[in-house]
Write a protein that binds this DNA or RNA. Sequence first.
DNA 1: TTGTAGGCGTTATCAT
DNA 2: ATGATAACGCCTACAA
Lengths: 359, 359
Amino acid sequence: MSQNIKTATRSRRGTNRVTMEDVAAHARVSASSVSLFLRNPTAVSPRIAPRIKRAIDALGYVPNKLAGSLAAARTRAIGVVIPRLGRAFFAETVSAMQTEFDRCGYQLLLGATEYDPAREADLVKTFLSWSPAALVVTGCHHDEATHTLLRRTNVPVAEMWELGDEPFDLQVGFSHHAAGEAIASHLHSLGLTRIAFVGANMTRDLRAAQRRDSFCSWFSQRSIDVFVVDLPSSASHAAGGHALTIALDAMPDIEAIACLNDAMALGVMFEAQRRGLRIPDDLAVAGFGDLPFSQVCVPPLTTIQPHASTIGLRVARELLRRLDAENGESASNAPKVVDVGFELIARESTRRFRDCSSQ
Amino acid sequence: MSQNIKTATRSRRGTNRVTMEDVAAHARVSASSVSLFLRNPTAVSPRIAPRIKRAIDALGYVPNKLAGSLAAARTRAIGVVIPRLGRAFFAETVSAMQTEFDRCGYQLLLGATEYDPAREADLVKTFLSWSPAALVVTGCHHDEATHTLLRRTNVPVAEMWELGDEPFDLQVGFSHHAAGEAIASHLHSLGLTRIAFVGANMTRDLRAAQRRDSFCSWFSQRSIDVFVVDLPSSASHAAGGHALTIALDAMPDIEAIACLNDAMALGVMFEAQRRGLRIPDDLAVAGFGDLPFSQVCVPPLTTIQPHASTIGLRVARELLRRLDAENGESASNAPKVVDVGFELIARESTRRFRDCSSQ
DNA sequence: TTGTAGGCGTTATCAT
DNA sequence: ATGATAACGCCTACAA
């Protein structure tokens, strides 16, 4: 018998949290009824339902998702890894994703890598430790550690903003290679040959590097050399102005500049204006991103619209489909690649007197 | 005896997750030792430490924070509620916060209200259900539901980007009232009297509304009427251009425009340029936010620098201090208000030939 | 429809 | 220093 004594109940009850059991007691029902009610209010008899409801807001009960998720072995959290919060396109993508996930009760865990591969691995590991329902990462280039984590896990992994080989589960993006060529071909069609590509931080921003490479090789195939500027700073408006200065120094008779993004392009345009260079007559400028200012600036900016919010939407939709399928019949679990494409928007910043085709 | 049979062990072990016990088995130690090692590697004997470490990466073990947090009754997650992800100032604040929290192992839960009070309440409730270590909300104006939740909880609550009465625990921000007056007084000091204030969505963006009100009443005390434009759209570059059109219609001899933010101000400047209005000679323009483009645009924009990243930094620091204190001796738990101030940056967009004082 | 009890993967307490 | 074992708060198969 002595082995049966409850050894002085080592109480750790420091938490004075209102628990489901408290609600049950208050409503004079069992905890499981409360649990049932919370998940499906119509599943309990109409007599005790109001009692439970009343108890819930009388006590100000907030369910403990920690306990719930642990027990159910699944979460309604989705880890999202992006390079930078400030980058407008990612913000748009995340915003669209959040809206979509929200209506299905999923919560976003957001992390920014600041273009540091090591931080990406950290973030993925952290997110994984929260047992998320899914993981969303930016791009298809990850370091060894991240790759291993992503491959080993069994939560769905979505890669966005880039298409590559060997998708884990889902890729939603477009070809930066094609984007770079699209801008190159556009500038070339205007008869421009004295060209520069300006960017910043391109050793780390691999997608930008892809666009640059395709841009340059497109021209080099036509025996045109592109002058490249890669600043060590971040790709900001100020960097754009700085880059123009460098480009003009190296190539005084420059005719066109393609920029890593619209922010830099705007910086280039401001600097040009400051120097009395007319756009597009003296200098054609193209960007990437089609940010809100790009269609209202003077002159309106030729750029590439990457469908940022579409990317977020599709990622969310595909992921939700997969998550729903998990509960029911297993739908196609095969990797899926969605190319949302992009659109070259030719505006006045690259318009030539003799060019009537664009816009 | 029959009452002793383990009733067909209702095994729910569907999860094939690598658990701490698996690591323990692999390392031939107990789970407690692994747990101990994870929290303080030096606490276990130097003989078994390497065994555990090897087992961990052999199995690719990732700790389950859900279980850990549940058992420890505390989380390393911090809920952050902001109006919009896309808004550059909030992005900057969040970015600074993340950096700071990250180095202490805290994870951010991010949610955007889109300026909808009901969504704010939802988000707060959701976050609370994750038992966060702290909660950060934007502004001091919350609807009834949110207010109740925030008051009832016992996790520290930080309000940012605004100062108000009755802080819950912490407020880090500045006076939008003072900011509105600062711009008003600046424009007035230039001798300008034909003035407009343009914004958008100000019935929901209460901080912008505060700036507008103070701006207007400052002038009205000097018997000057301010023409106000409040567009229903979001406060974007395009809205700025649109607002200028409206303002010029109503007040053709307008001399100065103050804008809800720098994005709108830039929109105003572009539209002015398009109409052949010179800035600042024909029209002075002021913004709010000091975004990256504001110092490089043409002309550089007079604006208010709100110290966005300082806000994030201070919120994080103060919160971390409070959280540390919880474990040790209880430091001051009294509400604290931090006024980080702001800075009026007078640039060329409001410079007059006879004005030599600014900048 | 409602209640019972075992388990989710940790942390923390206690005993060794 | 290491190992059992009881919470943590909820979900869920199963019994009533």
